[in-house]
Design a protein around this nucleic acid. Structure first.
Lengths: 344, 344
DNA sequence: ACCAGAAATGAAAACGTTTGCATAACTATT
DNA sequence: AATAGTTATGCAAACGTTTTCATTTCTGGT
C-alpha cells in the first residue's frame, strides 16, 4: 500500500475526475455538475476519505478554527459562556481551539502565539485587560478578534459583554435602597481581573455618591471558592459591629457567605443581607434565594460568536463593534428586608 | 510587499542560513550549532515569524492538537475535568480542539470526522457509550484515543475514570446502613448517558441485594438542573408515604432536593436523607453539607491527558490501558441520621 | 599539515490541498 | 447545423513546512 489513507487524488481517481474537481465539489459546490458531485460523494464513501484541513489551511485562509484564551474553564459562569460560544461557532462550521492561562496575563501572549501558529481564523479573549504585546500582536497579524464578557466603550478591539461597572452600581444601589449604611464587601483579587475591578469600582462609586464609605476592614478579599468565602465572611460577621449587608464580587462568594451566616445562626436577610453578581445557575434556587445582577452568559456567548464570524467573513468591515448586553437586577430573598431608621 | 507575513524562508535569509536549518533549529535543536541557533532566533525576532503548524502538519504527523468530544461544557464537573485535562496537555505542548454534542450521540460521529479532518494527533471522548461507527472510525484511522470519566474493564479503548456502578453501590450501601427501607431515586435520563445508567444500576443492585426494591413511582427522572430537581423532589416528598431517603444521580440534583425539602419545612437528615454522586465543588460547603461519592475529576483529567500523550508518543505500545481512579464516599450531614426499627 | 570521521548545513522533493488559466463540453440561438 | 456563449473540468503552480541525501565544514589524532 503506497500511502496510509485516501487523499483527494484517490477520490478523484475513484470518481473518474481530477483532483481539482473534487476540491471544487467541497468548496464551491455550485461550480460542479450534480451528477459529478454524486459520483464524487460515492467515491468519498468508498475510499473512506477524510479531507485534510491542514493542507487546506496551508495556502489560503480557511483553517476552520477559532482560538479562545480563557483564564480557566473551571468556573460555572465561564463554562456557561463558552458552551454558548462554541456551539454557535459550530453552527457556522468553526471548531474551537482552547487554551487557559489561570489568570496569568503574562502567559497569555505565548498562548496567543501558539494559537496563531495553528492559523486560527479568529481569536476570542476574555475581558479587556491584556498586555500591550498581546494587543500589538493581534494588530500586527490583523487577526479578527473579539473580547468577551466585558463591555467598554473605549475598548481597543471588538467587544461583547456587560458593563461590570454598572453591575456594581446596580447592586450597590439596591443595597442602599434597603437602608443599609454599614456595608461590607468580599471581592476576588482585583489585579489582573478587570471584571472584578470594574464591579468593585461601581460599588464604591455608588456608596460614595450616597455619602458613605466602606472602611478597609470591611473590604475582604476571597478567591473563587465557597469554602474560602465562608472564612472571609465569618471574619466580617464576627466583628464588634458587623456589617448589615454584604456585597459579594460574584455569586460563588455570595453563596459561601449565605452558608456561613446560616451556620453562625444569623437570619438572612434580617440579620445580614447578602448580594452577589452573576446570577449563576442555582443562585435563584438556593435557600434563601440570592439577590444578584444577572450577567447573561448565554447571550454574550452567542453574540460574541456571531460577531466574530461576521468579522471573519468580512461582513463587518469598517469600525469597532461594541455590544453591551443588558444586565438584570434579580431581587430575591437574600436582601428582602428594609432597615428602619433606628437600626441604621 | 511580496507576501504578508514572514515565512521560514524569510527567516532563513535573515539568518543567512537555509530553510532546512531553520526548520531543524525548531524540531531537532540538538542537530544545529549553538551560534547558528542564536542567529536564527534573532532572525525570528526581527522578522516577527510565527511558524505555521498547518504546514508542519501537512506532511508528517505533528499537528500539536488533541480533539475532545464532550456532551457539554456547561456542567460543573466536566468543567473541572476538562480544565485539568487541557492544562496537562498544554504542559506537553498540545492544544485542545473542543466540540460538544449536547448528549446527542448521533452527532458524535460527525464531530469525530471533523476533528480528524483537522488531523488531531489524539482524541478524547467522555464515557464509553458510543456508536459503532464512531468506534469503527477510530480503529480504522488508528487514532490514539482515550475514553475519560468511566472505568470499565471491558472497554474497547483506553479508559481513565471511575467505576460509576461502584459509585452507585457505595452510596446505596451507605443509605442502607442508615436503616432506610423506603428509598426514592432521582436520576437523569439513562439512555445515551452510560455514567448515569451505571450509577443507577449500582444503586439498584445493592437495594435488591438487601431484599428491598424501589417501586417505579419512586424512580424520578430529572434533567441536570436545580430547578427541575426541586420539582421532582417535591413530587416524591408530597406522596402519602414519602421516602425517608433520596439517592440522587448527581450532586446538582441532590442540591435541588435539599433546597426543596427545606422549603417544604422538612428537616434534613431527620425527615429525609439526601445523597448525591460527584462531590462537586460546593457540595461539602452547603448547609446541610451533602453526603456524596467523590469522583476525582481533577485526577482523572490529569491521568487521561498523560495516558493519551504517552500513547501518541508511542510509549504505550502493546495493549489497552484502563485506569480506575478511586472513589471516596464523603459522609456528611445530609444523611447523618440513623433510622430506628419503629420508623422503618 | 593531513586525513578520517563526525557534525552541520544545503538542495530539492514531498506532503495534500486550492485556484487561475486554459480547454473541453454543453446550451441555446439563429 | 453552425456559432457564440456559458458551464464544467483538467493542468499545473503554489502554499510553508520537513526530511532524505549529498555536500561542506569541523574536530582531533597522527
Amino acid at each position: 500500500m503506497r500511502k496510509k489513507y485516501a487523499d483527494i487524488i484517490d477520490v478523484a481517481i475513484a470518481a473518474g475526475v481530477s483532483a481539482a474537481t473534487v476540491s471544487r465539489s467541497f468548496n464551491h459546490p455550485d461550480k460542479v455538475r450534480a451528477d459529478t458531485k454524486k459520483r464524487i460523494n460515492q467515491a468519498v464513501e468508498r475510499t473512506g476519505y477524510i479531507r485534510n484541513r491542514a493542507a487546506q489551511a496551508i495556502h489560503g485562509k480557511r483553517s476552520g478554527m477559532i482560538g479562545l484564551i480563557v483564564p480557566t474553564l473551571d468556573n460555572a459562569i465561564f463554562a456557561n459562556l463558552i458552551q454558548a460560544f462554541t456551539s454557535t461557532l459550530a453552527e457556522h462550521g468553526f471548531t474551537m481551539l482552547v487554551t487557559t492561562h489561570g489568570y496569568d496575563l503574562k502567559s497569555e501572549y505565548q498562548l496567543l502565539r501558539s494559537l496563531l501558529s495553528h492559523r486560527v481564523e479568529g481569536i476570542a479573549l476574555i475581558g479587556l485587560e491584556h498586555n500591550a504585546e498581546t494587543y500589538d500582536l493581534l494588530e500586527l497579524r490583523e487577526t479578527p478578534c473579539v473580547a468577551i464578557w466585558n463591555y467598554n466603550q473605549l475598548s481597543r478591539i471588538h467587544c461583547v459583554g456587560s458593563d461590570n461597572f454598572e453591575a456594581g452600581q446596580q447592586i450597590a444601589d439596591h443595597i442602599l435602597s434597603k437602608g443599609h449604611k454599614n456595608i461590607g464587601t468580599i471581592f476576588p483579587q482585583l489585579a489582573g481581573n478587570d471584571r472584578a475591578a470594574a464591579r468593585f469600582a461601581g460599588v464604591i462609586s455608588k456608596i460614595e455618591e450616597a455619602g458613605l464609605k466602606i472602611p478597609n476592614e470591611l473590604r475582604s478579599q476571597s478567591i473563587y471558592s465557597i469554602k474560602h468565602a465562608r472564612i472571609c465572611c465569618r471574619a466580617l460577621l464576627q466583628r464588634d459591629t458587623p456589617p448589615t449587608a454584604l456585597i459579594c464580587g460574584n455569586d460563588v462568594i455570595a453563596q459561601g457567605s449565605i452558608y456561613e451566616a446560616q451556620a453562625l445562626g444569623m437570619k438572612i436577610p434580617q440579620d445580614v443581607a447578602v448580594a452577589g453578581i452573576g446570577d449563576f445557575s442555582g443562585s435563584g434556587e438556593i435557600y434563601p434565594s440570592l439577590t444578584t445582577v444577572r450577567l447573561r452568559a448565554n447571550k454574550i456567548g452567542i453574540e460574541a460568536a456571531q460577531l466574530l464570524v461576521g468579522v471573519i467573513n468580512g461582513e463587518n468591515t469598517q469600525s469597532l463593534t461594541r455590544i453591551a448586553v443588558d444586565l438584570e437586577l434579580q431581587e430575591r430573598e437574600s436582601t428582602n428586608f428594609q432597615i428602619n431608621a433606628e437600626n441604621a
